[in-house]
């Protein structure tokens, strides 16, 4: 495939970004190849309702119950 790109004048005033996170890129410039991948896992099984280790079951927690 043949492709021709002509870059003309590029001028930007202000860029306001809240956050750049988890394998993200803000590029002011040129690049040949960019590969960004992100996997995020919060399945229902990740919610554990169960006992905490023994040392956490102190008297204060027992009183709350």
């Amino acid at each position: 495939m043949n492709m021709t790109v002509v870059n003309h004048h590029l001028s930007v005033g202000h860029i306001a970004i809240g956050g750049v996170a988890s394998a993200s890129l803000v590029l002011i410039g040129d690049s040949e190849t960019i590969q960004l991948a992100s996997a995020f896992d919060t399945p229902p099984e990740s919610l554990i309702i169960g006992p905490f280790p023994e040392k956490q079951n102190n008297k204060k927690n027992e009183e709350k119950r």
């Binding site: 996170a21 590969q35 990740s46």
Partner: peptide, 21 residues
């Protein structure tokens, strides 16, 4: 945050991977 880049200038290749649980 978490392996992100703010890049002023040119680059050739960018490869990034993020895995969060």
């Amino acid at each position: 945050s978490s392996t992100s880049v703010v890049h002023i200038g040119s680059t050739k290749t960018v490869e990034a991977e993020s895995r969060v649980k």
